[in-house]
C-alpha cells in the first residue's frame, strides 16, 4: 500500500468517525446555543438510538440481563436496516419532545450546574436501566448487507487511490452529509430557522416580537434528539453495542461542540471532522521505533482529542465559528 493510499484511508476513516460526532454535535450545539440547555443526556439518546436500531433491524438473542432471565431473550423485530433508519429518528424525535416538555423546559431558567446534574443523572439512569434489561454483555450489531435487497451496503468497496474501503463507512458519511444538509437548509432558509437563529442571540426579543418561541424550542430539541438517534443507528454496526456507548460518546461530542463554537452548524461539522481526523490519524499512524524504544500512537487517540481541543480553545476561546457573546 502506498503512503498516499494509506493517508487516504486515514482521511476517510476520520471523515466517518467525524460524521458520527457531527450528527451528535449538531443537535447538542443548537440545543445549547438556542435553548442554553446543557444536555448531558444527549449520549443517552445515542444509546436509545443504537438499541432501538438494533432491535428494529435484527433478531437478537440476549445473553444476559433481566429480559433474558425472564425468558424474553429472543428479542428484536428483524425488519431490516432501512426500517431502523426511518423509524429510529422518528422514535427518538418523540423521546426528545417528551424530554423537552417534561424535563428540559423547567430547567431553562436554572443555572448550568442544575442542568448538568439533572441530565447527567438521567443519562446514568437510562444507562443502568438498559444494563438491567438487556445485560451488560456486548450485543452484535451486524452490518446490513443490502438495503431494499438490492443496494449493497457492507463489505469492501474498491475506490481509486484509496484502494479497498469498507462500504458501510462510506454510507455513514453520505447519510450524515444528507441529514446535516437538510438541517442546514431548515435553519438557514425557513421561518422556523429564522426564529431559531434569532432566538440563539436574544430569545426575549423574539418573544417581544410576538413569537411563541416555546414551539420552535420543542422542535429544535426533537431534531437534535433525532440526529443523535440516527448517529446511534448508523454508528451501531461500527462499534460494540453495550449500555456504556452513550457515556463514551458524550465527551467527544461535547469537545466537537466547543471546538466548532456553540450554536453553529458549520462549527459542529468542522469540529466533528477535526475530532474524527485527529482520532483516525493517531490510530492509523504506524508505530515508530527509535533505537530500542517503540512509540505507538493509537493509545494516545483519546488524549489527542483533549490536546487538539485545548490548542484550539487557547487560540479561540469561543470555538472556531462561535461568537463571543454566546459563552459555551
Amino acid at each position: 500500500m502506498s503512503i498516499v493510499s494509506e493517508l487516504a484511508v486515514i482521511l476517510l476513516n476520520g471523515l466517518q468517525q467525524g460524521a458520527i460526532y457531527v450528527l451528535l454535535a449538531v443537535g447538542l450545539s443548537i440545543i445549547l446555543g438556542t435553548l442554553k440547555f446543557v444536555n448531558f443526556a444527549h449520549g443517552a439518546l445515542y444509546l436509545v438510538g443504537t438499541y432501538a436500531g438494533l432491535f428494529i433491524a435484527l433478531d437478537v438473542t440476549l445473553s444476559s440481563g433481566k429480559l433474558q432471565e425472564w425468558g424474553y431473550g429472543e428479542f428484536g423485530l428483524g425488519w431490516g436496516f432501512l426500517a431502523a433508519l426511518i423509524l429510529v429518528p422518528l422514535f427518538v424525535f418523540a423521546v426528545g419532545l417528551l424530554m423537552e416538555r417534561f424535563l428540559a423546559r423547567s430547567f431553562y431558567d436554572r443555572p448550568d450546574t442544575d442542568q448538568i446534574l439533572v441530565t447527567f443523572g438521567l443519562a446514568i439512569v437510562v444507562q443502568e436501566l438498559f444494563r438491567v434489561l438487556f445485560g451488560s454483555n456486548s450485543l452484535p450489531f451486524t452490518q446490513p448487507e443490502y438495503i431494499l435487497s438490492v443496494i449493497p451496503v457492507s463489505g469492501p468497496m474498491q475506490l481509486p487511490i484509496v484502494g479497498s474501503f469498507p462500504r458501510w463507512r462510506l454510507w455513514v458519511i453520505a447519510i450524515t452529509a444528507v441529514l446535516v444538509g437538510i438541517v442546514y437548509l431548515l435553519v438557514e432558509h425557513t421561518d422556523f430557522g429564522l426564529v431559531v437563529r434569532a432566538g440563539t442571540r436574544d430569545a426575549e426579543m423574539v418573544r417581544l416580537l410576538g413569537i411563541k418561541i416555546s414551539r420552535p424550542y420543542l422542535v429544535v430539541f426533537g431534531i437534535g434528539a433525532a440526529l443523535a438517534g440516527v448517529a446511534g443507528v448508523v454508528g451501531g454496526p461500527l462499534n460494540v453495542v453495550n449500555p456504556t456507548v452513550g457515556m463514551n460518546i458524550l465527551v467527544p461530542a461535547f469537545l466537537t461542540v466547543v471546538i466548532g463554537g456553540v450554536g453553529t452548524i458549520t462549527g459542529a461539522v468542522v469540529g466533528g471532522l477535526i475530532i474524527g481526523l485527529t482520532q483516525a490519524t493517531l490510530i492509523g499512524l504506524p508505530s515508530v521505533t527509535i533505537a530500542s524504544f517503540t512509540l505507538n500512537f493509537s493509545p494516545w487517540s483519546q488524549v489527542g482529542l483533549y490536546a487538539i481541543a485545548a490548542i484550539i480553545l487557547l487560540v479561540r476561546p469561543q470555538g472556531i465559528f462561535g461568537n463571543e457573546e454566546v459563552a459555551p
Partner: peptide
C-alpha cells in the same frame, strides 16, 4: 416594545430582522 439597547439581531440581515416581525402571523404561531 423598542427596547433600550435596540436589540436588533446582529447575526441576521436587515431583511431577516424585518421579516421576523411577520413570522408572528404564521398559522403555527
Amino acid at each position: 416594545l423598542v427596547p433600550e439597547e435596540r436589540r436588533v439581531f446582529p447575526n441576521l440581515t436587515v431583511a431577516e430582522n424585518l421579516h421576523l416581525a411577520e413570522v408572528v402571523n404564521n398559522k403555527s404561531n
